[in-house]
Amino acid sequence: MSSPLSHAFVPAALVCLLAALPASAQQARLKLDHLNALAAKASEVVEVTLDGQALAMGAKFLEKEPEARALVQGLTGIYVKVFEFEQPGAYTSADVEAIRSQLQAPGWSRIVQVKSRKDGDVGVYVLSDGKGGNAGMVIFVAEAKELVVVNIVGPIDLEKLSSLEGRMGIPKVGLGKGGAK
């Protein structure tokens, strides 16, 4: 014989169960196609799409950076979009919301958020794998003249990622504005 309480409990348990399910690569990859139109307005654009074979191929040649190589070992994709604009207001709040709404899906949690009138919004999000680790991350920066999305699909060690700065053999990527560079 079931009680009214048990009827209420079943849907709640299902929600918890779903939340605890391991996150899939599909979940960790954001849909960013709507940002492509911004490229025409931007003064500087950096776009990187690395998945599957291309990622494995690139990793193979990181012989002198074993830490970086190990870091990308379990990843299935890295997607970067950086748009720099001459004037503020080049992107809309709808552009930003389309990203934020994806990051409100179950499993995603924000680990860093900085909001300031001067520097705009900066957020770091990770997707839980349901086992205490992560299944991907997103770095999202929306400043007056800049929009940046970094989407890493697969388990990523944030500490190691942080330590790679300036060690990948390429000059700074022109991100000096408002930073501590």
Binding site: I78, V150, S163, L164, M168
Partner: peptide, 10 residues
């Protein structure tokens, strides 16, 4: 591309 992506992310 991978070097650039890791640099930007980091």
């Amino acid at each position: 591309q991978l070097r650039l992506a890791l640099e930007v992310a980091s």
